[in-house]
């Protein structure tokens, strides 16, 4: 393997990992507050299609990215209203959000299939991007990759050293106790869900405006679900999400790696890899089921309604 190939592989790993980081960070915040949102895939698709339509119509990628974020939040609002305000079953509501998002995005995107966009352009970091290998791998990306790393730092910091992080954790661990000391459980949970929606909407914009600048039905290809497993894999720790997402990113671009060897594997077989990897991770996690249970937020999946 030559150095160019290695550079390309690392570069692609970075790009492929980015949407997973966004979704998984959003979902982690959500789950830390005690809400399990299985609707990631639906929010992701709606974010992707709305971002793409906005970019096609206005030509303004900045605006389009915001539209995608708001679309994700809109979907999250639906989920939050049902599962937090009305205390419906989170699993069923999340599945409904995914099915609804799949239908809605296919409907909205009907007239946009097959259109290509230029996509958000690379923004090279001056000077640093000229470093051989590392420059290409780390500093010749589009702005969303850098933004993702900044958002990672933000989430990491919030949970490490702020009152807000503590509040979110309290709500997720023991909502009754949090309520007793005057934290508005419903409000914190709703904010967490909206944050998750914004992150997933942004990930959608990344898919349809950067990763493959076009729209096709179901283009998220299960990334929302993979990110959900990633949160468990990372045992609800932001830094491990970063690591896990890049590992998954690597698994999904193994065809690039194989290019260097003589192996020839049909593309559809290669496309199975991320899903197989997810199953393997789930199996591996279960070998340490107690640890997983210990690190999971205590009240995850349980609706909370304060006694009025």
């Amino acid at each position: 393997m030559d150095i160019d190939l290695i550079t390309n592989i690392l570069f692609a790993t970075f790009k492929t990992g980015t949407p997973l980081i966004l979704i998984a960070l959003g979902e982690m915040v959500c789950e830390k507050s005690g809400v399990l949102n299985l609707g990631q895939e639906g929010m992701l698709l709606v974010g992707a299609v709305v971002g793409f339509i906005a970019a096609s119509v206005t030509g303004n990628y900045f605006l389009a990215t915001f539209c995608a974020i708001f679309a994700g939040m809109g979907m999250a609002f639906l989920f939050g209203y049902l599962s937090i305000t009305l205390a419906s079953n989170q699993v069923a509501t999340g599945l409904a959000l995914t099915i609804f998002g799949g239908g809605l995005s296919a409907f909205l995107g009907t007239n946009y299939i097959g259109i290509g966009l230029e996509g958000i352009q690379v923004w090279s970091v001056p000077l640093l991007s000229d470093i051989p290998v590392i420059g290409k791998v780390l500093f010749q990306h589009d702005p969303l990759v850098y933004l993702t790393l900044a958002l990672f730092a933000l989430v990491f910091w919030v949970f490490r050293s702020t009152r807000l992080g503590l509040k979110i954790r309290a709500v997720g661990e023991n909502p009754e106790a949090a309520n007793a000391i005057g934290i508005n459980v419903q409000q914190i949970r709703f904010m967490a869900v909206l944050f998750g929606g914004a992150m997933t909407g942004l990930a959608g914009a990344y898919l349809s405006l950067v990763y493959t600048p076009m729209w096709s039905d179901g283009m998220s290809a299960g990334r929302g679900w993979i990110a959900l497993s990633l949160v468990v894999f990372a045992s609800w720790k932001a830094e491990r999400i970063l690591l896990g997402a890049y590992l998954f990113g690597f698994a999904s671009i193994l065809h690039l790696v194989l290019q260097g060897t003589r192996f020839e594997v049909p593309p559809n077989i290669m496309a199975m890899l991320p899903y197989v990897a997810t199953i393997i991770v789930l199996v591996w996690l279960s070998s340490d089921a107690i640890k997983t249970k210990m690190s999971a937020p205590k009240s995850i999946g349980q609706p909370y309604r304060p006694l009025a």
Binding site: L78, L82, L86, S88, N89, A92, T93, L95, A96, L97, I99, F100, G101, G102, G103, L104, A106, F107, T110, D217
Partner: peptide
């Protein structure tokens, strides 16, 4: 694709 939209709406309204 209105099919999927109707199906999604149906499930959502049912949960509510």
């Amino acid at each position: 694709s209105l099919t999927g939209l109707f199906q999604g709406m149906l499930l959502f309204f049912l949960l509510a």
